[in-house]
């Protein structure tokens, strides 16, 4: 065991992958719990796709990659928060908007690949599927710092956000700033999507968001236990994925990470069986298990 750990520590790329990946998984797990609780998985999905367009737009125009990533994700996240409270046509609007944004991404990708004759589409593809073993030291530190920041914010607003997510009407009656919380939360989702894109990829981030949170919600009905369980499953999946990918180099690391998360969800699904215990949303003690 110790031999393993020292071996991993001796490889810089593995060290960076574990360092940044742990922070990303932690943020994705915490954010993911609330995303699933608030039924905003589609929004999270859309935001992770937006990260792709932001990154390729930056590549095509020669701007800084981080500016493109964070700019696109945060702007679209806040726009979705603004749209979210109105009317019922949510998922149609989300679908139309993000399909168009992906179309823009296709445009920027083609501009990028045709303008830089020397390069092939590899960078664009990396944005889609991530290259966690390719992180540099500075990238790893930036990603980790940003993701830890997200964790701190989520923990800080955790209690009112939980209240607002479970019963928005009662929460706003007891003067919880429901709307502001919605904005802050989606902003954090955007930041997480941007930070995670380089590591796990714009298309795969959803796996770290939805699967651990879904599993945690089936395992326990207590909100804060589920919140931490979700983060724990996400981090565990990431570690397992990285180790498998290191041991079997033919498998892409992103596949191993998402595969581990999906497998965890499947196992939890099989263990808890049906009917699912409904999450006790009113804060009453969970049924005996």
């Amino acid at each position: 065991m110790i031999v393993w750990i020292t071996h991993i520590y001796s490889q810089p790329f593995l060290r960076y992958a574990f360092f940044a990946g742990t922070a990303i998984a932690l943020a994705a797990g915490l954010v993911g719990y609330f995303i699933v609780l608030r039924s905003q998985v589609f929004t999270g999905d859309a935001l992770s796709h937006v990260a792709f367009t932001g990154a390729v737009a930056a590549l095509a125009t020669g701007a800084d990659l981080l500016v493109g990533l964070y700019g696109a994700c945060i702007v679209v996240a806040l726009a979705m928060a603004a749209l979210g409270n109105r009317g019922q046509s949510d998922d149609t609007v989300i679908g139309s908007v993000f399909a168009w944004i992906l179309g823009l991404g296709a445009l920027f990708l083609s501009v990028y690949t045709t303008s830089k004759s020397g390069s092939n589409g590899t960078s664009g593809v990396n944005v889609l599927f991530g290259t966690i073993f390719g992180l540099s030291a500075s990238q790893a530190i930036t990603d980790a710092a940003v993701c830890l920041g997200v964790c701190v914010v989520i923990i800080a607003i955790g209690r009112p956000l939980l209240f607002a997510s479970i019963d928005a009407a009662v929460a706003s009656a007891s003067r919880v700033p429901v709307r502001a919380l919605g904005f802050i939360f989606l902003g954090m989702v955007g930041v997480t999507a941007a930070a995670a894109t380089q590591a796990v990829g714009a298309l795969l981030l959803l796996g770290l968001i939805a699967a651990p949170a879904g599993a945690a919600q089936r395992l326990t009905a207590r909100p804060f236990a589920a919140l931490w369980l979700s983060a724990g499953i996400a981090v565990g999946s990431l570690w397992a994925g990285l180790l498998i990918a290191y041991a079997a180099p033919t498998l892409p690391p992103s596949f191993c990470i998402i595969g581990a998360a999906t497998l965890t969800y499947l196992i939890v699904f099989a263990l808890t069986g049906n009917p699912a215990r409904p999450a006790s949303l009113s804060g009453s003690p969970p049924p005996y298990s």
């Binding site: 998985v41 939805a210 879904g214 049906n274 009917p275």
Partner: peptide, 30 residues
Amino acid sequence: SLGGKARSSESAVIGTVQAFALACGALFVS
């Protein structure tokens, strides 16, 4: 099998299916 409760778990399932499928796609491509 969830007994018709909360849409939230349904969307978690859909999200997981999607992410895993894409991960498989990445695997096949590589």
